[in-house]
């Protein structure tokens, strides 16, 4: 019976797909490409389509990296969007107040300082998160729910919900410019993903993050200062939100207290789809990037097919359940 070709093919497929999230996702991406190539045709592979995909991905990508760091340690960071908006507004405020009338070196200096100030705000939020989670022992979901509301409140209170817009050319370039046809924002995503991947896979700090995610108590008893690691991790997560802030305000050429709020749960969706264990300890940057590409391919293809973006949301949810269920079916398959 087991020699029947149909069964062995299925077994091989399941065995291959079940051999890790990356394999499943690669297969899925390939399948999607085939389906969309047939339904959409050449238009799907045009330079325009590819470029617009590359423009849309970085915001969600950088925010997902920020979420991923917290998830790997067994935590969660619900404050990433609020942090991004608060630091975006800081940058926007400084730019719109000091750029007009400045020239030469001051003009460059103010832009650099504004972005630095934005990062400082993000780092401060990260310090609060890290301190409350690591040193006071508050659960990450509660602590970051608090800072999320606090940051959003601060942003709304200070701006009264208004938009700050109109930035100098170099800032706008970050979100809308291209280098040899590659969107600059995609380069920013790469410049974030590569160091994060290196940090997680090739440094003692990265190893400790995975250890904390697997078993925090055991890690502490084996002599690791888990509190210092967690503090640093939440600062890094917040700083990534700060980078996302720059990309976001550059792309829209404006900043607001409520931009990108629907991204929050999507970053969790992307991270989990990418094989990051929501309880911590497992997951790679490569998986996350694959998941982001899949989400983007679906979104862009549906756009070309003139299907509602809300149908895209539903499909994203369906794919998450399907991919999460693969290990279950792979485990049940006859060996």
């Amino acid at each position: 019976m087991s020699n029947a070709p149909g069964l062995s093919l299925r077994r091989r497929m399941v065995g291959f797909a079940g051999s890790g999230t990356v394999a499943t996702l690669t297969l899925l991406l390939f399948a999607l490409w085939v389906v969309f190539a047939i339904t959409i045709g050449d238009r799907f592979f045009s330079v325009n389509t590819l470029q617009s995909m590359a423009f849309q991905m970085p915001e969600l990508g950088i925010l997902s990296l920020a979420m991923m760091l917290a998830l790997l340690s067994g935590g969660l960071n619900l404050s990433i969007i609020a942090t991004a908006n608060l630091s975006g507004l800081t940058i926007a405020f400084l730019l719109t107040h000091y750029i007009p009338g400045s020239q030469g070196l001051a003009w460059v200096g103010i832009q650099v300082l504004a972005i630095a100030a934005g990062f400082a705000v993000a780092a401060l939020v990260g310090l609060v998160n890290g301190f409350v989670i690591a040193y006071l022992g508050v659960s990450p979901i509660l602590a970051t729910l608090g800072t999320m509301t606090l940051c959003k409140g601060l942003a709304i209170g200070l701006t009264r919900g208004n938009v700050i817009s109109g930035f100098p050319e170099p800032i706008v370039f970050i979100g809308n410019g291209t280098v040899f046809g590659v969107p600059f924002a995609l380069i920013v995503l790469a410049l974030c993903a590569l160091p994060v991947a290196l940090m997680l896979n090739a440094t003692p700090f990265g190893a400790r993050v995975y250890m904390i995610g697997s078993n925090e108590k055991a890690t502490r008893y084996s002599g690791v200062d888990t509190r210092a690691v967690l503090l640093k991790l939440y600062v890094l997560s917040s700083l990534l939100a700060g980078v996302a802030a720059v990309v976001m305000l550059a792309r829209f050429n404006s900043a607001n207290a409520a931009y990108g709020e629907s991204y929050l749960l999507v970053t969790i969706l992307a991270a989990v789809l990418g094989g990051i264990d929501p309880f911590g300890g497992f997951g790679k940057v490569g998986g996350l990037l694959l998941a982001l590409i899949i989400l983007q391919v679906i979104s862009s293809a549906f756009n070309l097919l003139n299907l509602s973006q809300f149908l895209t949301l539903a499909i994203w949810g369906g794919i998450l359940i399907a991919v999460a269920a693969v290990p279950h079916f792979a485990g049940k398959a006859p060996r």
């Binding site: 749960l265 969790i268 949301l313 539903a314 949810g317 998450l320 999460a324």
Partner: peptide, 8 residues
């Protein structure tokens, strides 16, 4: 997270 997106 998935069903939120699916239902909505």
């Amino acid at each position: 997270v998935a069903t939120l997106n699916i239902f909505y």
